[in-house]
């Protein structure tokens, strides 16, 4: 299952809810888009949460959103970058998609 999070983890509990349900439910992938990409920054509280979730879930971030926000040099190691085409591939590879709005 592909989970999509588009909210900053610093003002919203969406990422925490997604990880609570998705990780315990086991496996799948997390794609961070829009303001959700801030969760992929290293040395941040959210980044630490994402890093510890990586054992349970594959983490991707949408590169155009990362770059737009100027965080490309601070991305957490292990987060895979995808463009919109890669986003499409992730949707195809997983049997279903949940956008955590």
């Amino acid at each position: 299952m592909l989970h999509i999070v588009n909210k900053s983890p610093f003002e919203n509990t969406t990422l925490a809810s997604c990880l609570r349900v998705a990780c315990k439910g086991g496996g799948g992938a997390l794609l961070l888009i829009e303001d959700g990409v801030y969760a992929a920054t290293k040395n941040s509280i959210a980044g630490n949460v994402v890093r510890s979730a990586m054992g349970d879930i594959q983490v991707y971030a949408l590169w155009p959103d990362v770059e737009a926000r100027g965080i490309q040099d601070r991305v957490l190691e292990g987060v895979k970058m995808v463009d919109y085409g890669g986003f499409v591939d992730l949707v195809v590879e997983h049997s279903n998609v949940q956008s955590w709005l």
Partner: peptide
């Protein structure tokens, strides 16, 4: 940004 993301996703699709 939702509409922009949707459009760019649709185009890539």
């Amino acid at each position: 940004q939702a509409s922009d993301s949707a459009y760019l996703f649709a185009k890539a699709t």
